[in-house]
Every structure is written in structure tokens, then in C-alpha cells.
């Protein structure tokens, strides 16, 4: 027999799967209701602590992957990965990808004519320490246009992907920058109901800022937390 400690369910800050203002959701979101299942060992386990055996080493400096530094404003993003009870999530991997300072991705399907930067890929990976802390160095990405509607522009953002401790804690998200007027009119950010959308906006922090080197921003990531009492596997269903 084994103990299964279930994870909390979604809170009110999660977006719906169908959000018609973001047009691609219309044909790609399920129409049938989700089937609720009780957590089993499958949902509460995950490849925690194995990230280096899966993917390889950390890549925490996105400005040091090529011959010369990339164009753009150098920034540091740092924070903690926590669960909903504010306990740190140690040794968990965060994967990072983003556009360059001009708002262009190195991806071949990105056909916007903003310049590529041979010194910037925009992909990295960090792992949290024992207190759940992480830190990476990059350049501030630019905004970019997209085809969702007339004159649609994505606010500057960095994509983040977290495995967390279990299958149930898997999270992919995006962080945004303060005082960006495009957030208010972006259907992807606004799929998250207010005020929870603001959880995705980093805070400028002078103490994270490195003198004569890089601006600093804080961004904590909160994964679904475990409920207080373990549930024995032999509950009926």
C-alpha cells in the first residue's frame, strides 16, 4: 500500500481552455467536459531531481551562448518557485525561451522582418536551489506582431516551462514586464481573469539590479500545492 497526497485543484486564476478572443483556441479546445479523476501514484509522481539525466546541464546565461554579447538591454530575472502554501520547491527545472531584443524568434516559421541576432538564441534552463531560488541572465525581449486580429501585437514576454514535483504540477507560462501598454489589449494575457493576470507581471527590483551591468526583475512561480492530509490509496471511488 502506498500513500497518495493529492495536489490542490486549479484556483480561480487559471484561464479557460476556450477563449475566443485568442482565435487559435476555437478549434483546439475540448468541447466535452473534463473528467475529474482522483489522484493516483501516476499524477503525484514526476521526474523530480532527474532533470540533468534527462536534458543535460543548466544554461543560465542566455547572453553567453555565442561569440559576442547579444544586442539589447541586459536583464537578470530571479525569484523562487513555491507551492501554494509558500513552501519552496527545490531542485526543479525551469526551461526558458524568448524572442530577441527586436522581438524576433530564431524559429524558421517566424517571418516577421525584424532583425535576427547571430549572438542570441533565446533558450535556457535553470534549476532551483534548496530554497527554491533561481536566477537567469538574458536580454529584454521585444514586442512582436501576430496574426490574431488587425494590428495585434504580443507584449514583451518570456516563456517558462516547469515540471515541478509531479505530473499534476506541470506548468507552462509567460512572464510580462511592468508598464507595457500591450498587456491590456493582449488576448493571451487577458485569458487570465483579473486580478490574477497581474501574477504574470514581473516587478523591477533595485536590489536584484547589478550595478553597471544589468537591470533586475523579480518573478516568483507558484505551483499547485499538496493538501495537508495524506489520502490513503484504499479509499473507495
Amino acid at each position: 500500500m502506498s500513500l497518495v497526497i493529492p495536489y490542490a485543484r486549479e484556483d480561480a486564476g487559471q484561464p479557460p481552455s476556450l477563449y475566443p478572443d485568442y482565435r487559435s483556441t476555437v478549434l483546439r479546445s475540448p468541447r466535452q467536459p473534463l473528467v475529474h479523476i482522483p489522484p493516483t501514484l501516476t499524477e503525484v509522481t514526476g521526474p523530480a531531481g532527474c532533470w540533468d539525466r534527462l536534458m543535460g546541464d543548466a544554461l543560465a546565461d542566455l547572453t553567453a551562448q555565442h561569440r559576442a554579447p547579444p544586442q539589447g538591454q541586459r536583464i537578470v530575472v530571479s525569484g523562487r518557485v513555491l507551492d501554494e502554501t509558500a513552501r519552496p520547491v527545490p531542485d526543479t527545472v525551469i526551461e526558458i525561451w524568448q524572442a530577441n531584443a527586436a522581438g524576433r524568434y530564431i524559429h524558421s516559421k517566424d517571418d516577421w522582418d525584424a532583425p535576427l541576432d547571430p549572438n542570441f538564441t533565446g533558450a535556457g534552463r535553470v534549476v532551483t536551489d534548496g530554497e527554491g531560488r533561481y536566477r537567469f541572465v538574458t536580454v529584454r525581449p521585444g514586442a512582436y506582431p501576430w496574426g490574431n486580429h488587425h494590428n495585434a501585437w504580443r507584449p514583451a514576454h518570456i516563456h517558462l516551462s516547469l515540471l515541478g514535483p509531479g505530473f499534476a504540477t506541470r506548468l507552462v507560462t509567460q512572464l510580462y514586464f511592468p508598464d507595457d501598454p500591450l498587456i491590456e489589449i493582449d488576448p493571451i494575457a487577458n485569458a487570465v481573469p483579473m486580478p490574477y493576470r497581474q501574477r504574470l507581471v514581473v516587478r523591477f527590483d533595485i536590489d536584484t539590479t547589478v550595478p553597471n551591468w544589468a537591470l533586475g526583475y523579480l518573478f516568483d512561480i507558484v505551483l499547485r500545492g499538496r493538501q495537508a492530509t495524506p489520502m490513503e490509496d484504499d479509499h473507495g471511488h
Binding site: 486564476g13 487559471q14 484561464p15 533565446g122 516563456h159 516551462s161 507560462t173 485569458a191 487570465v192 501574477r199
Partner: peptide, 16 residues
């Protein structure tokens, strides 16, 4: 509270 989910978008292939 929980960090809201967002799409991976179309350009994740060099990052994930």
C-alpha cells in the same frame, strides 16, 4: 496563488 498557465505558442521548438 497559482501562477496562471499560458500557451507554449508556435515557436517553442528550439527551447523545449
Amino acid at each position: 496563488g497559482q501562477t496562471p498557465s499560458q500557451t507554449v505558442g508556435p515557436f517553442f521548438h528550439y527551447g523545449l
